[in-house]
């Protein structure tokens, strides 16, 4: 067991090492077992989905991966390295990006600031430089700002860079949140119900965006979603949770035909989605 792990360790793994591996994950809240014996393997570059009825424990799993909850048992391996017990900000710095069910932008900060925060860990200057406005600060701050602006341009958000996040319409806020999560240069992106509150047209746009993001940034993506059109249309492999456990795994087609899944979640008479 090495004494330290770095983001490069996580990033430059052999192709065979899964981007994310979860073994026998357990979470208790007092007497309630929210997650039980949860296993998951997500290969590098994969676009995986995690679905299940409300309360199945999906967001709890996400929270444990990103470090907001400490697992009661089991292991989480990011690029082959154990990450349980690490602080959330450390896990982010190792290369995990995340969005939230209820959009969690920094409401009273501008769109540009929201993205610039992603670069805080790699700002290139320290507090002293900033306080005395050393040359290093001026140069690095300008570079940081330009990088953030270029990043916003990729998502067609450059025109709203000075707008306060809370003034943007819902769909745009979603885009900013995804952009912000990507600005920290993650290897693994966790999307928690990215399609919540969207109509079918917006969902198609989102699907394109997710594809684009995966190609452009060479990422692994794991998402939680309830909108079946979205999940079935975009995910390569899906795991289904119910009552804290995995009840089924497979490709979208396999999942749709699985009677246990149909029973627990999709309901009788579900229509097969191409």
């Amino acid at each position: 067991m090495t004494t330290t792990i770095t983001a490069t360790d996580v990033a430059h793994q052999a192709e065979t090492v899964p981007a994310l591996e979860i073994r026998k994950l357990v979470k208790f809240f007092g007497g309630l077992r929210a997650v039980n014996d949860f296993d998951l393997v997500v290969k590098q570059g994969e676009l995986a989905g995690l679905i299940g009825p409300n309360g199945a424990g999906k967001t709890t799993v996400f929270n444990m991966i990103s470090g907001l909850y400490v697992p009661s048992g089991g292991r989480i391996l990011l690029g082959g390295e154990d990450i349980e017990g690490l602080e959330p900000h450390e896990i982010t710095q190792l290369g995990v990006g995340r969005t939230f069910q209820n959009i969690r932008l920094f409401q009273n900060l501008s769109v540009l600031d929201n993205v610039r925060i992603a670069y805080h860990a790699h700002a290139g200057y320290n507090l002293l430089d900033a306080t005395v406005r050393a040359r290093r600060f001026t140069i690095q701050e300008r570079e940081l700002t330009e990088r953030a602006q270029d990043f916003l341009a990729i998502f067609k958000l450059e025109r709203v860079q000075d707008e306060l996040a809370r003034n943007l319409p819902y769909g745009e806020q979603r885009r900013v949140e995804i952009a912000r999560a990507l600005a920290s240069n993650p290897r693994l992106l966790l999307l928690d119900e990215p399609a919540a509150g969207m109509n079918p047209a917006e969902i198609v746009t989102l699907m394109d965006l997710v594809h684009f993001v995966r190609e452009r940034f060479n990422l692994t993506i794991l998402l939680i979603e309830h909108q079946m059109r979205f999940v079935m249309g975009i995910c390569e492999r899906i795991s289904v949770m119910d009552f804290g456990e995995v009840i089924a795994r497979g490709t979208p087609t396999e999942i749709q035909d699985n009677p246990r899944v149909v029973e627990a979640y999709l309901g009788k008479g579900a229509v097969r989605v191409e």
């Binding site: 900000h89 939230f100 009273n108 925060i117 670069y119 507090l127």
Partner: peptide, 29 residues
Amino acid sequence: RNLIHSSTGRAIMAVREDETAAKAMGIDV
């Protein structure tokens, strides 16, 4: 003022806005 108008200042304000999101952005709250 120099503190506020810097990356640390933004991080400080991010903590005010939403601690959970700040953690998710790699900020040691």
